[in-house]
Design a protein around this nucleic acid. Structure first.
Length: 870
RNA sequence: GGAGGCUUAGCUCAGUUGGGAGAGCGCACCCUUCACAGGGGUGAUGUCGCAGGUUCGAGUCCUGUAGCCUCCACCA
């Protein structure tokens, strides 16, 4: 059944058709009840567009864990799905409508939603294609969407329950208002950016006296919503004015002058204007003093009737006009250029307006506290990798404020609240009121993250008590970026805690952001984004996956560097060629069952021990999500130990006439390759499957193989003698270069230990020396091309005729210097009573051995130098 | 104003309980029958940001400090 691999690694050909086949065969479908479940839910991508390279990274990590766990014998569920992404998708659909010359208001809510669903279907199809390209081992029989029927029920259930428990309420609060999207935002949907601005100083005249004083503001347009002027009660500069009134320079209305501890005497002029409807601090002051909270702006950021002649003007236009009008009246004192932190909308990037409005909120303190309390329970603790993000997570929960969950959008879960048309009574329920004609439903929808927060359990059928929910929940590992710990991870944590009484996942593996080669964040405006589909086109998906998952440590950002993707490609190419070598050297009737561990050569045993070591280390690090370490170890085992050493060494056996030698090399090559394929499969599933299919295999697919375990039949050896051989070979190569000999020039050698005794070389070793270094072993030095090597040291002595004397002396001097340095260090330690008293005995012995080796090597070097001096 | 990360070879980064500084790429020189020239071989290159401390011993632990970066935070 055996066939050979194509001479060239062609990733297009290798990847072709495999994924569809895997899906069709049901390899990714969970449900084997005989096994223990392991669950990963995909962080649902937004249906706003296509996947970017950050998704490719995120998914590659999940897929590696999934494939690994499946091989480890788990009933693996990797659950796919997508997020409706309320505000983002609505903006995209709006833009599409705009390109057709219409607005959503022209077509109305129903029609708009139809268009949004069209959009969703279109992009969902694209995303599925991209998942396929990436090779994600997703169970499509369980795919979910945050607005599918079951999910809608879950959302309603959660909303109604929290409302009935008093954990959701509706009220007037200062919220972040996005005037462009015309919706409320939660605190974490805004970001603060330091931008240049101006501080305006205005003259306020006092009504009752001839006094006047200065008030500073950055937002003059809000002066139409001012209700008072506030000073600190302890501020003696203003004591005589307290209780009097000042004229608002904007509208000439008198404002009471009051006191409040909040005012900072040091800041500004010490006198602060108070706009309760447009500033959260001012709102607090107004609450304390029982003041009105007039709103002076419209939802679109224009001024309302309160602004008088400025009504209808944009907020910034009003700011300028008003300022010049005040200046004309002689009440502008100065304008200062300043830099300040201003809140911007994450979505539209416009400046967010603190705005008094009636919204729905989740009362967060008790929910957050519940999570924090359970972090103390090891069985309910959510473990972050790396651990430091636990602090980020917990500190955020400790300082949490109520969550504004209503959004003035159409695309999303409509709030299940109705208002009675006559009585104004509020009804909240999963089903609409029976006498629906008397009620009006709340126009708003819920924050997207309100539904995303239910993802790990609602996707499994909750609130129904389904079989999947019973079996696969709580989930095992969540993989996501540090940028959405607050948006998503924390919210899943408290919703899960509250509704399922469990943590939503045991582990959270955090990764960073992927940046461009210069370290800049990828963004549309910079045009420095990398399309993963293009990378796959250029290098193949396996190279992309290997690059993405082995080049960074957990939680750390990574740069996209094309040369590193190329390096990954080269590695895969190396694997391909090594596999070709193995296949070319296995006989047609090769039977893995005939492999015997009885007649292995020293080099066979050496590489199999290396393999065992690799299996053990890789498995340990896979469990710790240390994929970069795994990558490094596999890379050096495969390229260095297996390809550069063992494959070359094996040629001696393969080409010999001894059937036993041939067989043991063949068996060893087979075992190594099979295990290499298994170890690499989670990282590079396509190429490993292609190779696996090409030679004798037990399973119909590598996807069904089990993870390698340490092979106990391999004889344990001290690898010292192979290491000795390797160091001798390296030395011979070195002396040939120093002596300007061709690598292929034959050389006779004698090997001595440090005490000058000739070491025996067995026929196998002689064979290897012949093969790897074109050297033969001699009983004694004779002829022109003879060298002797001193093992365990680094000295290799070519005969005089061979060598470049100058170069040899220079090299020996350098060696002498190094050895003296090492000896000084070694003696220093061994003369230190502290070391002798406190260090472990093994360390002391090791150091003594080193010292004696150094001494022997040094005397050999010195002796050699003396000889050359003659 | 809080919190965290980074600083190791020319570049990008590893370095898992403290015990002789690593990889990839790049660089120099050599090598094309025998899996692979997108390959093989040999080699050069580091005051591990700086200063203290703990320790017999610190790239690794502690304290301080500089530079770069990120997150959180309501200062008019």
């Amino acid at each position: 059944m055996q066939k050979n691999l194509e001479p060239k690694y062609n990733y297009h050909q290798v990847e072709e058709g495999k994924y569809d086949h895997w899906v069709k065969q049901g390899y990714f479908t969970a449900g084997d009840k005989s096994k223990e479940p392991f669950t990963i839910v995909i962080p649902p991508p937004n249906v706003t567009g296509i996947l970017h390279i950050g998704h490719a990274w995120d998914n590659a990590l999940q897929d590696i864990i999934s494939r690994y766990k499946k091989m480890r014998g788990y009933d693996m569920l990797y659950l796919p799905g997508m997020d409706h992404a309320g505000i983002a998708t609505q903006a995209k659909v709006d833009a599409r409508l705009k390109s057709e010359g219409i607005s959503r208001y022209d077509i109305g809510r129903e029609k708009f939603l139809e268009r949004a669903w069209e959009w969703k279907e279109e992009y969902a199809a694209t995303i599925r294609k991209q998942w396929a390209k990436l090779g994600n081992s997703l169970d499509y029989t369980r795919e979910r969407f945050t607005m599918d029927e079951g999910f809608n029920d879950a959302v309603k259930h959660v909303f109604v329950s929290l409302y009935n428990e008093g954990l959701i309420y509706r009220g007037w609060r200062i919220i972040n208002w996005d005037p462009e999207a015309r919706t409320a935002l939660s605190n974490i949907e805004v970001y603060h950016q330091n931008i240049p601005g101006k501080m305006y100083y205005f003259n306020y005249k006092v009504v009752e006296t001839e006094d006047s004083f200065t008030v500073a503001t950055t937002r003059p347009e809000t002066m139409f919503g001012d209700v008072c002027v506030v000073v600190n009660p302890k501020d003696e500069r203003f004591t005589h004015l307290i209780g009097k009134h000042a004229i608002n320079p904007a509208n000439h209305m008198p404002l009471p002058i009051i006191t409040d501890e909040y005012v900072d005497v040091e800041f500004g002029t010490g006198a602060m204007k108070c706009t309760p409807a447009h500033d959260p601090n001012d709102y607090q002051i107004a609450e304390r003093h029982g003041l009105e909270k007039p709103i002076c702006m419209n939802p679109d950021g224009t001024m309302n009737a309160l602004a008088g002649k400025y009504e209808g003007m944009d907020r910034y236009e009003c700011r300028d006009k008003l300022t010049s009008d005040i200046e004309a009246e002689g009440n502008l004192i100065k304008i200062e250029d300043i830099e300040h932190e201003v809140a911007h909308s994450e979505r539209t990037h416009c400046i967010v307006e603190p705005y008094l409005s009636e919204q729905w909120f989740v009362k967060m303190k008790p929910l957050a506290q519940d999570v924090l309390d359970h972090q103390k329970d090891p069985d309910q603790h959510i473990y972050f990798y790396p651990e430091r993000f636990e602090r980020t997570f917990e500190q955020w929960l400790e300082n949490i404020e109520d969550w504004c969950i209503s959004r003035q959008l159409w695309w999303g879960h409509r709030i299940p609240a109705w208002y009675h048309k006559e009585t104004g009574e509020v009804y909240v329920g999963e089903k609409e009121p029976e006498d629906i004609e008397n009620w009006t439903q709340d126009e708003d929808v819920l924050d997207t993250w309100f539904s995303s927060a239910l993802w790990p359990f609602a996707t499994l059928g909750w609130p129904e008590d389904t079989e999947d929910y019973e079996r696969y929940y709580p989930t095992s590992t969540m993989v996501t970026g540090y940028d959405i710990i607050f948006f998503w991870v924390a919210r899943m944590a408290f919703q899960a805690r509250h509704f399922t009484k469990q943590r939503p996942f045991k582990d959270v593996l955090i990764h960073g952001l992927i940046r461009d080669a210069k370290g800049q964040k990828m963004s549309k405006s910079l045009g420095n984004g990398i399309d993963p589909m293009q990378v796959i086109e250029d290098y193949g998906v396996d190279a992309l996956r290997f690059f993405l998952t082995t080049n960074s440590t957990p939680g750390q950002d990574m740069r996209y560097i094309p040369e590193k993707v190329e390096a990954s490609w080269n590695f895969i190419n190396k694997l391909w060629n090594a596999s070709r070598f193995v296949l070319l050297n296995l006989p047609d009737d090769f039977d893995p069952k005939s492999i015997s561990f009885e007649d292995l050569t020293e080099s066979d045993i050496w590489i199999l021990n290396k393999l065992n070591e690799t299996i053990a280390h890789v498995t340990q690090n896979m469990e710790k999500y240390e994929f970069a370490l795994v990558g490094n170890e596999l890379y050096s085992f495969i390229w260095e130990d297996f390809c550069n050493w063992y494959v070359e060494l094996s040629k001696a056996s393969l080409n010999s006439d001894d059937i036993k030698l041939q067989k043991s090399a063949q068996g060893t090559l087979y075992i190594c390759l099979l295990n290499i394929l298994k170890l690499l499969h989670p990282f590079v599933p396509f190429v490993t499957e292609e190779i696996y299919q090409t030679f004798c295999h037990d399973q119909e697919s590598l996807c069904l193989e089990s993870w390698p375990e340490v092979i106990n039949e391999v004889p344990q050896i001290d690898t010292l003698s192979m290491d000795r051989l390797i160091s001798v070979i390296k030395k011979i190569r070195e002396v040939k270069i120093v002596s300007h000999l061709k690598p292929s020039a034959p050389l006779d050698i004698m090997i001595k230990d440090l005490d000058g005794n000739a070491l025996p070389v067995d026929p196998a070793q002689a064979n290897m020396l012949q093969r790897m270094a074109k050297a033969t072993w001699l009983d004694k030095i004779e002829g022109d091309l003879a060298v002797e090597t001193v093992y365990a040291g680094t000295l290799l002595i070519p005969s005089e005729e061979l060598l470049d004397k100058e170069a040899e002396i220079a090299k020996l001097k350098q060696e002498e210097k190094r050895l003296n340095g090492e000896l000084a260090r070694s003696r220093g330690i061994l003369n230190n009573p502290g070391f002798l008293n406190k260090a472990p005995q093994a360390k002391i012995d090791e150091e003594k051995r080193k010292q004696s080796d150094y001494e022997k090597q040094l005397s050999a070097v010195i002796e050699r130098l003396k000889m050359l001096d003659k």
